[in-house]
Amino acid sequence: MLTFPNAKINIGLRITDKRPDGFHNLQSCFYPVGWTDVLEIIPADQFGFASSGITIPGDEPGRVDANLCVRAYKLLRADYPGLPPVQMHLHKIIPIGAGLGGGSADAAFALKSLSERFGLNLTADQLENYARQLGSDCAFFIRNQPVYCTEKGDVFSEIGVDLTGYYILLVYPNLAISTAEAYAGVRPRLPDVPLRDQLLEPVSIWHKTVHNDFEDSLFPKYPVLPAIKQQLYEAGAVYASMSGSGSTLYGIFDAPIVIPNQFRAYRVWEGKPGAGK
């Protein structure tokens, strides 16, 4: 079974407070985009996992149990002992440490694929509950639709954000930023206006109101990030931002994009918003 786990972007990200369990509460909008990995899962005589493409930290021989796809399989097999062995092959394309949720998408698509391929008939709610055990934003990729996120980023509600008719340009500046590094610099605070209210305003004014709190500490540390954001606006973006806690910058455009030459040294993706196929 072949699937294409897709990335997401954060439209706004406010860190509101630190939780007793050490995590942070946040407000954000997750929106799917079509930059994808490739995941193949087929029945096998014994379980196996292999990867190609971008090197995945922790996937060295003998350490594949760290991979979220492997953990997804073992999580299901603990509850469904009859789940047969499989061979997994992940071709990694979505950059790592980029704020795009690629690893979380891989895990969620593994759960969905295993349920469908082997007739587990798990509901979306059941799959989300499994996904939450693997990572805070894994559950988003089960339904893979735009949502407003609160708490750890794993509590979802509907929001009327629709980027149909727009175009997205993602720019990954060959710089991985770990979640731990990103959160080390944040100062939680409640925004004066809830992010949900700002997102319901026209996209054309988001540049004045919708903010990613990680930019406050990471932009001074990595000057390439604000430089790319400014270049996106100069290229015609109606809104530009960092995505999540990673290093990818994205621009939302109201017309097809001509990729600026200064981005050719980076990894880029451009297309219409929405989930991969």
Rank of each mutant, 00 (worst) to 15 (best):
A66G: 15
V64G: 02
E181S: 12
I94F: 07
F263A: 08
S52V: 10
W206Q: 11
D21G: 10
K112P: 01
L100P: 11
G12L: 02
H211G: 03
W269L: 02
D17Y: 14
F156T: 05
P95Q: 14
L2M: 12
Q126D: 09
A107L: 00
I259P: 06
Y73C: 01
A7P: 11
H24V: 06
G119Y: 00
P256F: 00
P188A: 05
C149G: 11
A78L: 12
I41S: 00
G101W: 04
T123P: 09
G22L: 05
R19N: 09
P95N: 14
C69N: 08
F219P: 15
Q27Y: 07
H211Q: 13
P32G: 12
N144L: 10
G48I: 05
S104P: 01
V64T: 15
D216L: 15
Q46F: 14
T55D: 04
P202R: 04
S241R: 02
T179R: 07
A124D: 14
D17V: 07
L163C: 09
V155F: 07
T55F: 12
P5G: 05
L122R: 03
L111F: 09
L120Y: 02
R267E: 13
L75S: 13
L195Y: 00
G135I: 05
G276N: 02
K229Q: 07
A110T: 09
P5D: 10
D154R: 06
F156M: 08
D21I: 15
S113M: 08
N174I: 11
Y31R: 10
L2W: 04
E116K: 15
A108M: 00
P188G: 05
G48Q: 10
A66H: 14
E158F: 11
R14Y: 01
A131L: 07
F140G: 05
W206F: 09
S241F: 09
R264W: 12
F30I: 06
R117I: 10
Y73H: 10
Y130T: 05
V161F: 02
L111I: 06
L195M: 02
L75V: 11
A237S: 06
P81I: 02
D162Y: 07
D21F: 12
A275G: 09
P61Y: 12
G99D: 04
S28P: 04
A44Q: 01
L13A: 02
V224R: 00
Q46A: 15
E151V: 14
N121T: 00
I56S: 08
V210L: 02
I9G: 01
D254I: 06
E40C: 07
E128P: 06
G103Q: 11
S178Q: 02
R77L: 03
A98T: 09
H211I: 15
I252P: 11
S157Y: 02
L225N: 03
A237G: 11
L169R: 04
L218N: 12
Y130C: 01
V70F: 04
N10Q: 04
H91T: 12
V64M: 14
I259F: 08
F214R: 08
L190T: 15
K221I: 08
F47C: 09
P32C: 09
R189S: 14
K92A: 12
L122F: 00
K8S: 13
Q262H: 12
F214A: 07
T123H: 03
I11F: 08
V86R: 01
V161E: 03
A105T: 05
V210I: 09
T248Y: 13
G53F: 00
A78I: 04
P188E: 13
M1S: 15
C138H: 05
P194M: 04
L200I: 13
F156L: 13
